[in-house]
Design a protein around this nucleic acid. Sequence first.
DNA 1: GAAAAAAGTTGAACTGCTTCAAGTTTGCAG
DNA 2: CTGCAAACTTGAAGCAGTTCAACTTTTTTC
Lengths: 208, 208
Amino acid sequence: MSGLRTKQKAARERRILEAAVRMFRAEGYKSVRIEDLAESAEVSAGTVYNYYRTKGDILIAVVAMEVEEVLASGETIVSNPPNGVDAAVLKLTFGYYDHSLKYLSKDMWRSAMALSIEAPGTPNGQRYSDLDRRLSDQVTSLVATLQRRGEVRADLSAPALGQVIFNTLNQEFVDFVRNDGMTLAQLRDRVAQQVAPLAKAITAKDAS
Amino acid sequence: MSGLRTKQKAARERRILEAAVRMFRAEGYKSVRIEDLAESAEVSAGTVYNYYRTKGDILIAVVAMEVEEVLASGETIVSNPPNGVDAAVLKLTFGYYDHSLKYLSKDMWRSAMALSIEAPGTPNGQRYSDLDRRLSDQVTSLVATLQRRGEVRADLSAPALGQVIFNTLNQEFVDFVRNDGMTLAQLRDRVAQQVAPLAKAITAKDAS
DNA sequence: GAAAAAAGTTGAACTGCTTCAAGTTTGCAG
DNA sequence: CTGCAAACTTGAAGCAGTTCAACTTTTTTC
């Protein structure tokens, strides 16, 4: 079986991805030319396309890294949420938000989102949508847990509520990355304001 | 003052926009090359750029046409909404949805949305965002009206609820245009399912 | 260890959006 | 009606993502 070849391949892929994260963050996704990226990773432009189908693929690979980590840390919250609908939802949400800029800049998020909307059928777009759906499922899972605990009214559909809450978190995150001047603190505030009435309205009366 | 020149200018602009709507719908936004568009409008490629700053500009012009009409017809609903939170919200929402494919195809919506996310600072992106905000304000306005009527709980913030509801409508519309197989009827069903628990939760107890 | 096969790399060529210097048409003054 | 100025049109050139036929490197075979 192969030795040198496999090692070189892995090294090249790593160098390309590392160069991408560094350059995308520093100069913006759009501004980085494949040729610059290739030069920085010490390969040729053509070689980049042997590892990633398109420029967008490289970006989506970074997004996937980010979201996988977010999902993992969210799992610990869902499995043991704090008391109170409002507190539980916000803990999960703020966990998402605080992690969201670890690898990606707002600019990179914008490009990734645009990509996923523009071409939903491509592997790129689909991969992004899958991550989105898993986040949505996690929120729904939290609502279901709270409902089982008796904190959320039993006469309301948990999947529907989960979807509504996720839509709000997601839409506000989109607004956040769309607006370069907006801080994480402002995002948290806005979402807290929107979640408050929602939590109040869906909390079971007799939550002792 | 000018006569021939002004007339020719107007005629060219109209021809370009008409060709754009026709070709974008028929062949997809991405597939239409500026040169094809120009040929169809009987001008040169360069001339197109004298009337629209970018290819995206042409698309946003069509979106604006669509949304302006939607807003106008929404106004009549907000000024005199039917009884019941659920019914009122759905009437406004379905009005939006049913109109949404008059000039634009799903493909065109996708490209327009991608544009507005990718470059929020450009005139294009900003124009789209403004239309979005006006739609959101209209929903909020509806909630406020229902609250004044005593149909929505007085202890909940109308702007926050309006925003939450709009986020849901909007997000579901994004999913709709992302998925070529999804019908308007399915979109309506999904939204109805999500609005139902929300409406139930925020409806005032003593709505007689 | 040499030669053939397999795998991977390369950069030049292609595409489509956009810009711009040169050319053309229209409006207007005398 | 002639000539000048302003406005507009044009298509060729520039740019960046992507493809591909020719070349190089690694692995396998004998």
